[in-house]
């Protein structure tokens, strides 16, 4: 483990993240402010459409914040996997000319996404305060749930980025999968709107859906339907975690097996 976080790798990682951030808002007038503005504007649109026009979620306390939190977590998962997917191929010039640990590229992309998540959570916290959301003790679970989402996204990213080197189609396929995932995850609508209990169960097996509901439960309102409520406890609630661990191990194994030939295949 020590060799993975040697001084050299840490320096390189911080330089890669720095570069990523400098280039992200390159040439835009507002620059980093977009990191905050983007989720804010998206929130305004969704709020107007879903809360004001369609009147969804009126039975849930603090629904606007509930909505925003879901979007922010989903966006993190979306951004991290999409950016990682193309990152190995995107850094092809580096990989073909220099020996750096390949996983550093994925980790640096994931750190950029994490920093963005942090900024977005600041916006969420701001709305929580002006909406007078009660502070629960369960707030302490949030970091662990975010870690779960991060590890899930990491497993997926490792797999996708390595696969993308050989099969470029995966980029388009993943776009469709994400779009489907967005609607199959209770982000815009409360889970209670789905009346079939079987469907609720199936939806919550998805680690991102489970984590979003748990985070909302922990941070915004205990009215949220979580995997505990839906399955009534029992070992079923562990299924999402098993999926996360399996995908992470699978992703690392596959990435490792492919990493040596990236330079030739890009």
């Amino acid at each position: 483990m020590r060799q993975y976080f040697s001084k050299q790798n840490r320096t390189l990682l911080s330089e890669l993240v720095r570069t990523d951030f400098k280039l992200r808002y390159q040439g835009s007038v507002l620059g980093y402010a977009w990191s905050l503005l983007r989720p804010l504007l998206l929130f305004v649109i969704l709020y107007v459409v879903f809360v004001k026009f369609l009147k969804i979620g009126s039975d849930i306390q603090h629904y606007p914040v509930y909505l925003l939190l879901g979007i922010v977590v989903w966006n993190f998962f979306n951004e991290m996997t999409v950016q990682s997917l193309g990152s190995i191929v995107g850094r092809g010039d580096l990989i073909r000319k220099i020996r750096i640990p390949r996983w550093l590229i994925i980790v640096s992309t994931s750190i950029s996404a994490l920093i963005n998540l942090g900024l977005n959570l600041v916006v969420v916290a701001f709305f929580m305060i002006i909406n007078h959301v009660d502070v629960y003790r369960t707030l302490l679970f949030v970091p662990f749930l975010l870690l779960e989402v991060y590890l899930f996204a990491l497993g997926v990213s490792l797999f996708l980025s390595a696969f993308f080197v050989k099969f470029r189609d995966i980029g388009y396929i993943w776009e469709v999968v994400l779009q489907a995932g967005f609607y199959l995850t209770p982000i815009l609508y409360p889970l209670s709107m789905i009346t079939s209990e079987t469907l609720q169960k199936l939806i919550l097996i998805n680690p991102v859906a489970q984590a979003i509901q748990d985070i909302r439960y922990s941070a915004v309102t205990h009215q949220t339907l979580t995997i505990h409520n839906v399955f009534d406890g029992g070992w079923y609630v562990l299924i999402p975690f098993v999926i996360v661990i399996a995908l992470l191990i699978g992703g690392i194994t596959y990435f490792k097996s492919q990493a040596d030939s990236f330079a030739e295949n890009i």
């Binding site: 001084k7 050299q8 320096t11 390189l12 911080s14 330089e15 720095r18 570069t19 580096l94 750096i100």
Partner: peptide, 12 residues
């Protein structure tokens, strides 16, 4: 310079 240096293995 700093990016290239990091690739060469130098700290900031």
């Amino acid at each position: 310079v700093f990016l290239n240096g990091a690739l060469l293995g130098f700290s900031r």
